[in-house]
Design a protein around this nucleic acid. Structure first.
Lengths: 202, 202
DNA sequence: CAAATAATGTTTACAGCGACAACATGAGCG
DNA sequence: CGCTCATGTTGTCGCTGTAAACATTATTTG
């Protein structure tokens, strides 16, 4: 369920001094604690405590807190991208896009702290070598939109369409998370907003 | 430029023990420091230091840090609403709405930390007695959209139109702030996205 | 296989933070 | 003038992130 999906070659805590796969454990528990609190209330010491390891051991795997948070964000981004793909699987065209949008908002609602973290742009996340590429949610939306925008759409038109689509789902997600949209069912909201007709695609 | 616009009836630090209008000073300096750092990096002690007052004096005016942040957020919300109004002044219909959208995004870009704070929903900001009403940006958008949506639009249609419009500008703002939209001119982005045609208004 | 070396985890320590309690000051009212 | 209470201060606590020095184990190498 976590980290890099290698079936964790740990002996998990064979008995003592060395943990085995602390790095994965850090990310895993980090994500877990993120489910019950924001990224700001998340503390390195709490993670360490949870794992049962000294507070400073973290620094053998990450230069500082931001680096760990960046790793969590990358993990979350991959998870979001996976869910988007899964939601659109089997569909194509308009429906594929709509399903991706739904998956996007649903992810935000179900993982508020993680979602916020993803889009909080710590300095480290702006690294050019970072995951801002193939696996990013924006990329996936781009692909689905590109197919939608029609053959004779210019590059600029496609770009604008992507921008509108992404802004729409992202904005809806954020507004829901910040409690600005009073107690309405999230799923209904998604359908109201993420209807392909609402995007000027061509 | 700050607080509640009352021309600060302070003697500003007449010489000693009592400051005069610490509460306003706290908000003012809080907003100032927010311009060069996030809400998380903002510390009560730093604000106090800046004003030249002891760290704990803050607690004579706010129960805790969240309360001060909530006050800053309220201040920011009012400022945003003011700029929206000003931008739409003299215009009406589609243009009024477009100008409001532009003002919204522009505000976000120019006041990133403050904008984020506004939509961070501290528990205190969820208070029912809070400013979530008339002066809120959402409310203003609602008004302009209501006018746009046509006479025979149902309430549900109007609600959906508002939701789409707000999501669009909010999402664009957030994406820009999080650095997801690579180095393009913000003003151009606004015009690309916030074109009334892109909203399914009727 | 044994010794050197590198990787990983621990202990100790420090400064900065938010917050509480006890105390000091002085403004406003009788 | 003197009381009172709002406002500002000092001292302290437990928490945080993180640096330095040290301990333990894995891994490489002779």
């Amino acid at each position: 369920m976590s980290a890099n999906d290698n079936t964790v070659n740990i002996r998990s805590n064979k008995g003592g001094y060395h943990h085995g796969d602390l790095r994965s454990a850090l990310i895993e528990t980090g994500l877990k604690l993120l489910e019950q609190g924001s990224a700001e209330t998340l503390s390195l010491r709490e993670i360490a405590r949870e794992i049962g390891v000294s507070a400073t051991s973290i620094y053998r795997h990450f230069p500082d807190k931001d680096a760990l948070l960046a790793a969590l964000a990358a993990e979350g981004m991959a998870k979001l991208a996976r869910e988007q793909k899964a939601a659109a699987k089997g569909k194509d065209g308009k429906e594929a896009f709509a399903e991706m949008g739904r998956a996007y908002v649903r992810f935000a609602v179900r993982n508020p702290a993680l979602f916020r973290l993803i889009y909080t742009s710590l300095p480290s996340a702006a690294d050019p070598n970072c995951v801002n590429q193939e696996e990013s949610p924006g990329w996936l939306l781009r692909q689905s939109i590109a197919g939608l925008a029609g053959e004779k759409a210019t590059a600029a038109q496609k770009r604008a369409a992507l921008l509108r689509a992404w802004s729409l789902v992202h904005g809806l997600s954020m507004l829901i998370l910040s409690g600005q949209i009073a107690g309405t069912d999230a799923d209904k909201l998604i359908d109201e907003v993420v209807s392909v007709d609402s995007l000027k695609l061509r």
